[in-house]
Every structure is written in C-alpha cells, then in structure tokens.
Design a protein around this nucleic acid. Structure first.
Lengths: 342, 342
DNA sequence: ATTAGCACTCAATTAAAGTGAGTGCTAATA
DNA sequence: TATTAGCACTCACTTTAATTGAGTGCTAAT
C-alpha cells in the first residue's frame, strides 16, 4: 500500500505548509502556493484518499486538512531532507561548549540553553543518575576544626560534595589515612553495594576512627539518595506560547505542568533505546498530556553507559528538519568533547 | 488624614473579600456577607470616599470596587493579623529541612519547594553570589593519571568543583604539597584579588610546578565567573495559572517570561535591605511586568553577609496574612539551622 | 447621620445573521 | 480513463443586536 509519487508530493506540501502556518490547509491554497502541476480539484481527490489512508485529518466537513501523527512519521522517516548547519555556526557552538565542560551537568545544561535558543522550542536536559555509578575516588578535605568536606567522584564524571560535621578533631594526616583506606575498599564499587558488612570491615581496619567512618558512610548513603533523584533542566519553557496550538490557557498550562512532573519527563526521555536520535510524535507518546507534542531526543554515553539525554519538545507540527539537523550537529560535538575529556 | 474606625473596617472587609474571590466587591455583597452594622447605602458612601482617598478603584462606573496598591500597603502595615502555624506543621518543616542542608544551595532550593507547596504561590530561591566570597580552603584531588579535581570551599559554605586535565603526572604527595602552598597563599582572599602578581609569587615558590599552578589558578578564575552568575531557582511556577487575574494568555506569558529574566529577578529580590521581611506591592515594583504582582521576600545571612533570598511572588491580591506567617516561621527555622551549621 | 427607593450605567451573556474558505459531486474535456 | 471546471452545500468564525443583572449615585424620608 505504497503512496504514489504524486500523493507523496502533495503530502509533503501539506506538512510543510502546516508546519509553517499552523492553519488547516485546503486544496486551493495548496495549488496556488506550491507548484504541483495539477489543479485544485485533483488535489482534492488525492487529499480525500490520503485522508482515507489516515495521513490527513479534517476538523469538520468543510475545513482544510491537517497532517496526522502517521503523516509526520512518514515525513521524518522518508520525506525530510536534512539541512546542514553553516560551518560558522558549528564553530561558534564548539567555542561555547568548550568553555562550559567543567561538569557533565553543566555541559548538558548549556547545551539545552543553546538548543532552545536556536530552535525556538523548549529543550530538556536530563542527567541520568543511574545506580550503576561507580565510585572512582573519595577524598576527605579538612574545612575547620569541626567540619570536613567529603568529595565523591564517580566514574561517570559526576562529583558530589557533602559538608560534614564530625565529632572528633582529626588532623589532615589522619584524614588522609582514612581517605586512603576508604578508597582502597570502595573504589570501583557501586555505591548501593556498600553494605553494612563492608562498613564493618572497614571499621575493623581502622578501629580508632570507626565513629568517623560510620558517619561518613552514612552520609554517603544519603548523598546517593540525592543522586538518584532525577536532575532535569529546562530551557525556553515559555517558547510554547509562540505556538497557536498552545494559545489557550488550558493547553499552555497543562504543557507547563507536564514539565514539572519529573518522573513523567524521565520516562519520556528514556524510552527503550534506539541508537542516536529518536523522534516521538504525538500519540506515540504514552502520556495524555504529551500527545499533542513531539520530542526529538538524543542520548549521551560514556563507555557505553548512559549519562544523560537532551531533548527538544514542541508541537507535533514542529520543524523536524531544522531540529534534527541541529541536534545531529550538537550530538557530534558533544560526543567529541565527552570522548576527549572523560 | 486618618481613616475612621468604620472606614478601616469596611476597607478590611473589601480586601479580605477580594483576596478570596478576585471579583470586584460591591456594597450589597459587603453588607450581606460581613457584619458591618450599617446598610449598603452607607457602605456605598464610605466606599466613594475611600475611592477619593485612593484606597479603592473602580473598573467602570457601575462595577464594584477593587483595592489599590495603597490599600494593600495599609493592610500589610496595619490591618493584617498574623496567624501562627500549627506546631505540628512547624516540626514537619524542621524535619524536612534538616535532611537537606548539605549545601546552602540545596537548603534554599528545598525551602522554596516547601514555600510554593504550602502557599500555592510561586516561590523563588536566589543564592547571592557576591564577589566578597573568601577562599576558606582549596584542595587538589587526584582522579586518574591525567586529571585532578580542584575543590574550592568558600567561607559562605559554597563549594565548587572543577575537573581539570593537567599535562603532568603528579602523584598524591606532590599534589598535597601544591595544595598546602596554595592554601597558605590564598586562604582568606577574595578570589578576584588573586592577581597575576600573586600567581607569580606562588609560582616562584614551587617553580617546578609552575605550569600546573598556572593552570589551576586560571581555572579558578573561570570558576569565579560561573560563581558570579546568578543562581535562581523557582518552584510552583505554574501556580500562577490558578489566579483569574493571570487567566489570560498574555498575562500568564509575561509573568513566566519575567521569571526567565534573571537579572530582573535579582533586582526584585535585592532591594535596599530592610531588615527581616520585605513586602513589595504592585507598582512599588519598578519593573512594568511586576506591577501586577506582590513579593514577600526574606534575606539570609551568615556573619552579617548575605547568602541568599527567598521570595513568594503572586498577584497583588495575595493572601498576605498566610504568606507572611509562613515565611516568618521558615525564616526562624532557617536562621537557626544556618547559625548551627555554618 | 442613616437608610430606602429608583433611575441609570455598563460589562457580560445570549441569539441571530452574515461571511468565506473549503469540500464533494457531477458533467465536460483532453 | 484521468483531469478539471462549476456549483451547491457545510460549518466555524465574525459581527451585530438584544437581554440581563450587579452595582452605582442621587434624592427624599426617617
């Protein structure tokens, strides 16, 4: 049941026009605006068939047609032609990213800002906080008589600090000793594996500091809880107001409310992983409120472990061509950066 | 030009009613709903005079009246009676805060979440990133062969990490040596004071590591730039949709757009400092877009230096009584926590 | 000084009429 | 047989008019 060349051409024109105008498109407009080589009547007949096949929808009997999710799917899979970013833009991007890569979190955050600014849609950065984070290094830093700073470095590049009030007065050398011991035992472990048993083993080895060690490890557990929280960052949330389909207070509100549901956002961004770039269109998204939106999502990895996601979200009528080409570029740049630095 | 007892009573009733309903209030409603002991006609006369004095506004000749900013000002300064939070609520709050106080940033963030949830308005947490941050401690942590982590602890409790790729292969002992030297020179300094001269002095003392030292200090300067960025966090932004006065897409949009203007938000929260709790009402705010809003703001300090602000923002018709009493409670709890821990 | 009564105002709601883009069908045409 | 012009019909949207009702200001009575 393949579509004829002509049907594809008409469908493409409809989608292009609708992406641009957000207005249902009729046969007359189409024949005037695009050079399709056939009359409005012919287009009308083709449109009727396209509607039968589920590619177009009519809001009411005498309105123009609007592309369905199925049409967008066809569009992104077959019709869309990828544009290339101007080289100069690419280099500006690289510049701007280079300055921000101190932390993975920041890198994603700034990428999101870049994305929303250049696409005019809303973008989402999510740092994946998977439990398989392994401890790479742990350092105790003396702050003053009463307190120490526990610095935890994970192999994914994640760094966590905890300011800790410790009963005893430990001098730097003692701290270093504890640090070394903890590192020896904990390096390479997932933090959830640090069981009571492990703690006791460590305590046995440095019995005189058992209280401090317990305090530290207890706190690490708490830090883990925080780490497991989802870390989501948005940019350009108010861009949604630019789109007529959200130009009604109820729609805009539910869109913004959706963004506040971090669990939901997480599920939207972390669907079973198709490689590279994933596009989910309208009702393909399982959540009610997301069904009038499309997402273009890329996933970032270090050593084959996922560290985060970037996503552009907008109306189903989004400019897929633009968004996809921008995200592909960004993806390439980011992966280069990650490979070089982590 | 003081208002009579009766006028005050009527004004109070009008404000209370308008806070509750968001509808212009008329003389009849007023006399029926509140026990003012006079007839609607009398109230009408009083209202006319209150309007002359600028406490009330009429949207059109035959509408009820709405309180002006001047009325709200009178209300918060004189009429408002502070409620006390139930003790049980207080203790739940303390519990919830205690678990989050690892970092100043987190403390403010969680407080904001608490505020927006319990008030149903939007809340803002802003960490003041003033340049007078002094270096308390600096620690170099080895990560792997190629990279070190620079941990910077400021006396305000702010902690900053920078992952740094360093050319040379430094063993932990060498790193410690550099750490010590840097601490010796830098402790107590504002980071902007770390001039080229200081850097050169340090380099002279540990000439063999001059390259590493330069790298580290260069990076610190960059970190400072980040630190100087304003760090603003919002909670409950979509609560604004609950209020009929923002139930129009243009208003809602400009409110949300305002929140994205960090500089503006900063200026709103950091007005010349009245002690404790500050209420700015409507046109008292200098920015156009904020003129239909009121803010209740508290400022937090450690050792007399401002570390952050918390604010509740909503329509001028906000429930000042509720917001103020909640913020006073929170203020007390937070100050206790800060005093005990930093 | 207070209040009841009444004519008047004006936003908001409802109802009706008019407009126009777009469709489906049919018959003519290439 | 595929395409197109023509035409009657549909239906959301806009415009205009009529209706409603909460609220006011003024006046005269209490």
């Amino acid at each position: 049941m393949k579509l004829s060349e002509r049907k594809l051409k008409i469908l493409q024109a409809i989608i292009t026009d609708y992406i641009e105008t957000a207005e249902p498109v009729g046969s007359r407009t189409l024949s005037r605006k695009y050079d399709l080589g056939v009359s409005a009547a012919t287009i009308r007949n083709e449109m009727a068939e396209l509607e039968e096949d589920g590619y177009l929808k009519q809001l009411h009997t005498s309105s123009g047609r609007v592309p369905s999710d199925k049409a967008y799917r066809l569009y992104v899979d077959q019709l869309m032609e990828s544009r290339i970013l101007a080289k100069i833009q690419r280099e500006a991007l690289r510049e701007s990213l280079m300055q921000k890569f101190h932390e993975v979190q920041n890198l994603l955050k700034h990428s999101a800002e870049y994305l929303s600014e250049i696409t005019d849609y809303t973008s989402i950065a999510m740092a994946e906080k998977n439990k398989e984070n392994r401890i790479k290094h742990l350092q105790l830093v003396p702050v003053d008589e009463e307190r120490i700073l526990v610095v935890l470095i994970m192999d994914t590049g994640l760094v966590k600090n905890t300011l800790l009030r410790i009963g005893e007065n430990l001098d730097p050398r003692e701290l270093q000793k504890i640090s070394n011991l903890l590192n020896h035992h904990l390096q390479g472990m997932e933090i959830l594996q640090v069981s009571q048993l492990v703690i006791e083993n460590i305590q046995r080895e440095l019995y005189e500091y058992r209280r401090a060690i317990e305090l530290i490890l207890m706190h690490l557990q708490e830090v883990v809880k925080e780490v497991e929280q989802i870390d989501v960052f948005f940019s350009g949330t108010t861009n949604i107001f630019n789109f007529p389909e959200f130009n009604d207070i109820v729609k805009a509100r539910s869109f913004l409310a959706m963004l506040e549901e971090k669990e939901l956002i997480k599920n939207l961004l972390t669907l079973p992983d198709k490689e590279g770039l994933r596009i989910s269109i309208g009702r393909e998204n399982l959540y009610d409120i997301a069904q009038e939106c499309s997402l273009v999502t890329t996933t970032y990895k270090i050593d084959n472990r996922t560290i985060g996601h970037l996503s552009v979200i907008g109306p189903t009528r989004m400019d897929y061509t633009k968004v996809v080409s921008i995200m592909l570029q960004l993806n390439k740049q980011l992966n280069d950066l990650l490979r070089d630095n982590y």
